[in-house]
Design a protein around this nucleic acid. Sequence first.
DNA 1: CTGGAATTCAAACGGCTGTTTGATATACTG
DNA 2: CAGTATATCAAACAGCCGTTTGAATTCCAG
Lengths: 258, 258
Amino acid sequence: MSRVIRRFSGLVPVAVGLAGLLRSCRLKDCFKQVIDAGVAKVNDETTRDRILRAAGPIFAERGFRDATVRDICDAAEVNLASINYYFGDKARLYVEVVRFARASQDLIYAVPGEGVEQDPPEQLFQFVQALLRRLGLDHRANWQTQLMVREFLEPGEATRALAEQYFRPAFERLMNLLDELAGADREKDDRILDAFSVLGQCLFYKLSGPVIGMFEGAAVPGDRISLDQVARHITDFTVFGLAGGKVRGHVSRAAGQD
Amino acid sequence: MSRVIRRFSGLVPVAVGLAGLLRSCRLKDCFKQVIDAGVAKVNDETTRDRILRAAGPIFAERGFRDATVRDICDAAEVNLASINYYFGDKARLYVEVVRFARASQDLIYAVPGEGVEQDPPEQLFQFVQALLRRLGLDHRANWQTQLMVREFLEPGEATRALAEQYFRPAFERLMNLLDELAGADREKDDRILDAFSVLGQCLFYKLSGPVIGMFEGAAVPGDRISLDQVARHITDFTVFGLAGGKVRGHVSRAAGQD
DNA sequence: CTGGAATTCAAACGGCTGTTTGATATACTG
DNA sequence: CAGTATATCAAACAGCCGTTTGAATTCCAG
């Protein structure tokens, strides 16, 4: 009781408290938000920001569980207690980091060629190319992408917002793109499955990287095969693959010899 | 010093020691191997086996790090010290569990229709169908598959053997299958990329399950869309997609309007 | 300058982890 | 049966984890 009062002794916590998601987060933040809004400018990095920036790569590389607050504080060169002081606990720091990652890059969404008039296959190529780049197929992925892939593979509390705001728009843009390629008269389920086929092809290179490197014959992009080669292949594969959806009798049965 | 001598007081440890990978693992195992070889038969389950069997699902569900030896021992109804007594430590139990999982199911490999004379598209369909089933797209995946997917996504020490013995044979069978479909005159890189495209499409449903469930419109197999529908789609998509590889000029450029 | 709030800090706390220990019970051998 | 190797067990250990504490420091308005 007394500890809470001591800690929330100022007037600012009340504002945050009313905002709903309060608890113990420290409260220079409120001024910070005002500052960020453009009212004023902070020259040297605040402790909160250093934590946020240092935590990103660590969470991305090791995941929530394996990343320790001690390592994060060491990397940020702040005191061990700072995380609990500014964010309440490790979990809330994590969702803040995800938010930060999301804000500092728009992942799949901002695909080049959006709105530009080009033929559909070329638009698809650029979509795929951009996605592969975001996934880090050219160089190593940045930590933001790594973090989002992690959230994608095993969703947590922060994932729902991610899905709504980033994955879904990209997903719908892709479906529209495929409509242009295959004709818009497709059924809804087919549209979805087609989009999955494209995303699956792209994600495979990100997710299976370490293992396919073990197959002597196979080569990861960046090794023998360039990112553009992969993007080109996926585009071609898809453009022709879509034709399969048009044949309602289903090829694999229709082609049967019996 | 004295503890080692006390523990390895018998003569059996020497044999295992010579085998190379000894250390503190307990040594009824040597007899156990003889028993398994058919010399004798053990009626009631040994402690070692109970641990092995209980650890599988727990490692599969939570991963190596989040699975605790206490939970495993509770599930196996054995004493806490048993894991260290029989396996040395948690890590060596884990690789043993992976070996056990690998042995108790042959994952992707044993595809129905192997050797059976059917037209290539139907063979591909059955390959895809079998893979999706192994991945647990119909009901929930069994723990063996879960464990292998985990190893696939972030490889550990046990992964290399897995890749060599299971992933690779399936991979090569798939490439041969695609050769029959597309003609065998393809370049090596194209064969690999085509196979990746198929695997990517299949894996997508396993890996993105939780997230695509968040898209209201989209449906996971088992929900609105059946596993066979998905398998059929992937097959059709692939059969036509392979045609893209035959056009050397690359569709996405050739179809350009400029 | 002064007093009180905001922040930083070293130290510790309680809990959970994998592992070890030494005693005890069981099985087997000569 | 005696004696020894094997197996089981409750208890404890050391180490790391996230978190808390209370004092010291910095900051800033009056």
